[in-house]
Design a protein around this nucleic acid. Structure first.
Lengths: 231, 231
DNA sequence: TTAAAATATATGTCTATACAAATCATTTTT
DNA sequence: AAAAATGATTTGTATAGACATATATTTTAA
């Protein structure tokens, strides 16, 4: 029963040879034609296997120069940008949302500096809480640049969370994410039902449309929160 | 001037239709054969374009059921998988490293479960500390599956940190990352020079080569640590 | 009425072939 | 000696055709 050649089989076998140090970092590996002959597969199949390994950072390929085992596999992982309601519903929990405050005012110096805003730029400050199965899940504190998104003035943040409203109404092209751990302040502790100074997982996101800053949001989660991502 | 059909052109045009709301979330898009005819390309070419879009999360595909626009177009950000020494040196700080312990023993149930290992699988348990300008930067606790990486037995973790050693010697094809905030235990607090129960930023990483689990590592940072990434 | 079997259909993958594009090496020209 | 042209090699990508596999739908059997 001749097992059909598969790009997966080839891919994994080559990965095995690299991991088993049969093929050392920096070494040139056989070209596609040779590998195809060895595995009894078409070159296209070998090509697909190798392209996957290259995308994963295991090997480096160049036309005419051939394929070599990566010297320092520099790799990237991806994570999804969550919309908090979907995140909660995906876990099978009931989503609830509470608007805590919504005030139009100038942003404090620290926020202006991070967004690159002038002192007089009108901003909307929104605070709200997202719950999963009636337990606090995320405390969201947000500054919206009204010069970039004047429509936010008319948005009904009781009906839709600013998170969802902005996803629908304010596209962005650039974003910067920061994650860190911090101690809960008195307000955050109360809202997330934690003891004061309990560790919280903090995500911060700044988005731009072109050069224009849109919003800065700080999202605080209780320490049970896990951000998981796969390569 | 007949431009040659390219999977990139097709991929980008379909992405454009989705982002431009020509094809709405949840909608079924034409099947490969129809698209191939529309673009004047072979079905294999359309298939490649669609597979890339599926991998990027823009569409969802199922045999017989067809291809539909993802309901919640998931945007993704990338972050690099850091080698801690490079991370520290990139900040312009002096890197130091201290091996704390290195013991061959069976992993505890919890670790075995996460790695999918049998009870008797030999493992290497390594604990170490990374410092930036003589201040504790990261406490690393690691389990290495010796069945997958037997050479780790001979590795000199006084000279090279397990992080770097594994990057060079044990490639992986799959990885799962978890980030969370936690309260420092007594040992972690002492090592990171924090008060007990201070918030720590915890990163966890499991890697596989094909199906085979390689290592599980838990990396703990003081709360001053920031993980930053851009879209 | 329900369960099992058959069928149809869309995607998944492999093959053989062809040509394109990049780039390393060599030769020719300036 | 430097620059330009040429050639060779390797990967990149497209194609038509075939069969595999998953699964939604329909038909048949219990």
């Amino acid at each position: 029963m001749s097992e059909r050649a598969s790009f997966r089989v080839i891919r994994d076998e080559i990965a095995r040879r690299i991991s088993g140090r049969l093929w050392l970092p920096g070494a040139l590996i056989p070209n596609e034609e040779l590998l195809a002959r060895e595995f009894g597969a078409a070159r296209a199949t070998v090509n697909r296997a190798l392209q996957e390994l290259a995308r994963a950072g295991l090997i480096e390929r160049r036309r005419r120069a051939g394929t070599r085992v990566a010297l320092h596999p520099v790799r990237e992982a991806r994570f999804v940008i969550p919309v908090v309601r979907q995140e909660i519903e995906a876990k099978g929990a009931a989503y609830q949302y509470r608007l805590l405050s919504r005030i139009e005012k100038a942003a404090p110096e620290l926020v202006r500096a991070r967004l690159g805003l002038a002192e007089e730029t009108p901003c909307l400050h929104v605070r709200c809480l997202h719950l999963a199965d009636r337990t606090p899940y995320q405390f969201e504190e947000r500054w919206i640049n009204l010069e970039a998104v004047p429509k936010a003035r008319e948005a009904d943040f009781n009906a839709t969370s600013p998170n969802e409203w902005l996803v629908e109404n304010a596209p962005f092209t650039e974003a910067e994410f920061t994650f860190c751990a911090a101690a809960a302040g008195p307000e955050e502790a109360a809202l997330l039902q934690l003891n004061e100074a309990a560790p919280v997982f903090v995500g911060e996101r700044i988005t731009w449309l072109g050069e224009r800053p849109i919003t800065l949001v700080r999202m605080m989660h209780p320490p049970s929160h896990r951000m998981v991502t796969r390569l």
